[in-house]
């Protein structure tokens, strides 16, 4: 049984007041997310990521198609007992404290008063909300609300967790903490399905990813299958090299591209056909000093840009 399964999931809206025209928010999404995996749902802004997640939570209804969580239709209220959801840019009740919000959510899941309090305290510790937990939520920053949003999604110890842009509004430290939290959740056996347009998060966390663009699925699979991890060249950073020497190296075919990076240093891109030792030997005789040498691989970003660029842009219906 898959954690999440969609079949031909489609959502069309009518946009415009006087002469409403149909708009394709999502078209024919068929996807399986296996239990226990961290699955990245990637795409640029407006690609259909949030639409998909809202369809899974039944905040919107599909025009056609079908979605299941843990083998049950998403309309089944019982399945929501086993799911946690963080909406994009979450917002809560101004006059509740973080503690009270989590206790309220606990009450909706049927936990008794002491169990609610204990869960709220544990989860607020886990997402790094300290003494602020007794402040009204209207005084919270965006990043703190994001942390509270993550905590409220975990109140019921969910088996399937759906996060919409979980890193949004977080500082670098917060991003790292949430990444670590996601990995802890995975280690506990949870399935984490999260949307993001930050590819570094997907590279750091996901076993598999799907890329949506223009409301359609552009690619899905394991990162290693989607992205060619083979070395496609070398990046050599050297210091103490003059512009003439750089031009000579380019003329000799040792260097494909050279970028000045300041302090007299250059980042040189070498083709795969040139052994880096040979290029380095040539350059050091011209007075260059080695700063760093790294292999160049295709990144998820390269792949992403290619997929998104190839997606159809017209989202109206005839």
């Amino acid at each position: 049984m898959d954690a999440i399964r969609t079949e031909g999931l489609t959502k069309h809206y009518r946009v415009g007041f006087w002469r409403p025209r149909p708009y394709v928010a999502l078209e024919g999404l068929t996807l399986e997310v296996r239990q226990g995996e961290v699955f990245g749902f990637l795409g640029p802004n407006g690609a259909g990521k949030t639409t998909t997640l809202k369809l899974l939570m039944q905040l919107i209804y599909p025009t056609s198609g079908h979605a299941e969580i843990l083998g049950r239709p998403v309309g089944d209220a019982a399945v929501r007992r086993r799911v946690g959801y963080l909406p994009e840019n979450p917002s809560f009740y101004d006059y509740l404290t973080a503690e009270e919000l989590l206790e309220y959510v606990g009450a909706l899941f049927g936990y008794g008063p002491s169990a609610r309090r204990a869960r709220a305290a544990r989860l607020l510790d886990e997402v790094g909300i300290g003494a602020e937990r007794r402040l009204h939520l209207r005084k919270f920053s965006k990043g703190m609300l994001q942390r509270v949003g993550i905590a409220q999604a975990l109140v019921n110890d969910p088996e399937v967790i759906v996060f919409d842009e979980p890193m949004s509004g977080l500082d670098p430290l917060g991003r790292r903490e949430i990444r670590e939290l996601v990995l802890r959740l995975r280690d506990r056996g949870c399935t984490v399905f999260f949307s993001s347009h930050v590819l570094a998060d997907a590279e750091a966390l996901c076993s598999r990813v799907a890329i949506v663009a223009g409301g359609r699925l552009a690619a899905v699979g394991q990162l290693a299958d989607l992205v060619a991890f083979q070395v496609r060249g070398w990046e050599l950073v050297v210091a103490g090299l003059g512009p003439e020497a750089v031009e000579r190296a380019k003329g000799a075919g040792l260097v494909m591209r050279a970028t000045a990076v300041g302090d007299g240093r250059y980042a040189l891109e070498l083709p795969l056909s040139v052994a880096p030792e040979r290029a380095l030997a040539e350059l050091t005789t011209g007075g260059a000093r080695l700063v760093s040498l790294n292999p160049l691989r295709e990144t998820l970003e390269d792949f992403f840009v290619r997929q998104v660029g190839a997606a159809p842009r017209d989202r109206g219906l005839d």
């Binding site: 209220a77 019982a78 929501r80 007992r81 909406p87 840019n89 917002s91 009740y93 959510v105």
Partner: peptide, 14 residues
């Protein structure tokens, strides 16, 4: 408007 409904309706509440 404030989107608090999103997280609320994802709970077991009809």
């Amino acid at each position: 408007e404030r989107r608090s409904i999103y997280s609320l309706l994802s709970k077991p509440i009809r």
